[in-house]
């Protein structure tokens, strides 16, 4: 693993920590929902980067399933917060 990939991992880790602080602090439930959705997007980027590091391109399917599935949960959450299923 060369230095560029380590810098990428450090940037992704910093993004995860910042979104996580917003999830802990956020006054309303909507703030927390948006923070978790941002964490999901960052983690999809991390999965693609790790698939590149491990050099196994089958692993990219996991990130596809991950992003599609998290969308369903967020839609259910937003619908509850707006008017209650």
């Amino acid at each position: 693993m060369n230095g560029t990939l380590i810098i990428f991992l450090a940037i992704i880790g910093a993004g995860l920590i910042l979104c996580f602080l917003r999830m802990l602090k956020g006054p309303t439930a909507s703030d927390r929902a948006v923070a978790v959705d941002t964490v999901t997007t960052t983690i999809v980027a991390l999965l693609v980067l790790l698939g590149f590091i491990f050099e196994r391109y089958v692993y990219l399917d996991v990130s596809l399933v991950y992003s599609m599935i998290s969308f369903v949960g967020l839609v259910a959450l937003a619908r509850f917060l707006e008017r209650g299923i």
Binding site: M23, S70, L77, F80
Partner: peptide, 14 residues
């Protein structure tokens, strides 16, 4: 707030 607790549990699972 139980909705916030559910969101945090989803983060644990992720």
């Amino acid at each position: 707030d139980l909705i916030s607790a559910v969101i945090a549990a989803a983060l644990v699972s992720l």
